[in-house]
């Protein structure tokens, strides 16, 4: 029986050695800036018309054109907004975070429904691990290298406040889905298959530890555009309408307010998810004051081509 004991010992030893090979911690500030060449200030027009919605592909029509951001809102864009909003006294900065007034939402007093009353709500916490934006010497600063990464740690109130500040809004779920999958009912924004060089998701996380020297959580917006970064060749993976990061990287808040629940829905999947969460119909939701290291957003607007994001 000794050989069994030795075998078990060796198995346990090799297991613990394997576990010890961990990813570098994300505790130092700054990473190399990577220019993806994708302009995050661009908007893309989604034409009116029919598309196949949801897993079971229900024919759904959106009868108006609209524009949607080509990428997620970046840290730099959000920091610019915060500076402008602070100047116009549209937000307040406290030690714990950034707040703004929200007029509240209809309350149906349904089971598990959270009441969203009028008042100051958190847009983004300050000083929390994972936040890439800080408030120093009366100005907002983005952690070096993360300027063109999607903004994270932003609540639904923060996303909504950003959009409203510029006269835009968050996309509804069907607007988001149509922008992601086009009219041919595809599974992922770029087609029906997924590979590690097409999106930032759970199965590709080790790669970024290698590329950036540490686990960055997010990748720059538009990273998967066919460019080669070091010895890593990405596959150009835009949606049917040319949007980037509609699958993976960060979940994206959407704007719908549903009766009997004030949970707000997110779409797209994130770096923490397996591929099935990146399917164009996959949904997630959270309380509107929730923030996370892999939750961001993008905006839509009526078709006004002359306007640009900051």
């Amino acid at each position: 029986m000794n050989w069994i004991k030795n075998l078990c010992f060796l198995l346990c030893l090799s297991f613990f050695v394997t576990c010890s090979i961990n990813q570098p911690a994300d505790n130092s500030s700054g990473i190399p800036f990577i220019d993806t060449g994708i302009d995050s200030a661009k908007w893309v027009t989604i034409p009116a018309g029919e598309f196949l919605q949801g897993q079971h592909k229900h024919k759904t029509t959106i009868d108006y054109d609209y524009e949607i951001m080509r990428t997620d809102v970046t840290n730099a864009q959000f920091a610019t907004y915060l500076s402008e909003a602070l100047q116009k006294q549209a937000i307040q900065v406290a030690d714990t975070g950034i707040f703004a007034f929200h007029p509240g939402e209809p309350f149906d007093n349904y089971k598990h429904e959270k009441e969203i009353k009028a008042g100051d709500w958190l847009l983004m916490p300050l000083g929390k691990p994972g936040a890439r934006i800080s408030f120093e010497s009366d100005s907002f600063r983005v952690e070096p290298g993360y300027e063109n990464h999607p903004v994270v740690m932003v609540t639904w109130f923060g996303a909504n406040a950003f959009a409203e500040f510029y006269g835009w809004r968050l996309p509804t779920e069907i607007e988001w889905e149509k922008a992601a999958r086009g009219s041919d009912g595809r599974v992922y924004p770029w087609g029906n298959e997924i590979g590690r060089n097409q999106a930032n998701y759970y199965s590709s996380r080790h790669l970024f530890a290698k590329l950036f020297g540490k686990r960055t959580i997010t990748t720059p917006v538009g990273y998967y555009n066919g460019k080669k970064y070091g010895d890593f060749q990405t596959l150009d993976s835009p949606s049917a309408y040319g949007l980037y990061d509609m699958a993976g990287n960060v979940w994206q808040w959407t704007g719908d307010d549903y009766k009997d629940t004030h949970l707000h829905y997110m779409r797209g999947g994130s770096e923490a998810n397996y591929e099935y969460n990146l399917r164009t119909w996959a949904r997630n939701n959270a309380s509107p004051d929730y923030y996370g290291i892999n939750v961001g957003f993008r905006c839509v607007r009526e078709k006004k081509p002359e306007m640009n994001a900051p």
């Binding site: 297991f15 394997t18 576990c19 961990n22 990813q23 911690a25 994300d26 929390k128 691990p129 994972g130 996380r205 686990r215 959580i217 996370g292 290291i293």
Partner: peptide, 15 residues
């Protein structure tokens, strides 16, 4: 905290 969960995820998944 969410940012430090990678190690927990790795260990628990491996276990």
């Amino acid at each position: 905290q969410e940012i430090h969960q990678a190690a927990v995820v790795n260990w628990t998944m491996l276990l």
